[in-house]
Amino acid sequence: MKRKVLSFIALSLLAAACHPAKQPTLAPETIYQEPGVSVITSFFNNRQQTISTLYGNAEALKAARGDSNMVAGAVYRLITWKQKGNPLWFGGNINGAVKTIESIQVSGDGVTHYALVSGVATGAPAERTKFVLGLKASVFP
């Protein structure tokens, strides 16, 4: 009896201490991992329900902080994810699965090379290149 009472108390304490154990299934594949590039800027679009982050190499980052993004050697990667509500906070949105990966390189002669690395095209290469090269760097401290 004593044992029963004790285990009952222990169980209720456990139940009270542990919030329902439901760790969500993680999605590490949505993390973009390419050495040598860092964040230039980010943006989102509620009409498309997408979130995007623009990465670039050192040349691209420098260019996006200046007046012109047409700098030889600049490499850009634009990752666009589906946007979804934050499961743990009503009031916020977070990126979901990757939708598209776009790549732009500026070669020595000022010529640009566009490639849709993954996903379905959302615009003509010339249009997309113009848009990406027009993005300015976010302010970092």
């Binding site: 964040v39 979130i51 982050t53 994810w81 009031g91 949105n93 977070i94 990126n95």
Partner: peptide, 15 residues
């Protein structure tokens, strides 16, 4: 952190 990986990108409509 500027050299770390980005784990997520978010926005808030509450603020």
């Amino acid at each position: 952190y500027k050299n770390w990986k980005v784990i997520s990108t978010t926005n808030r409509f509450d603020n």
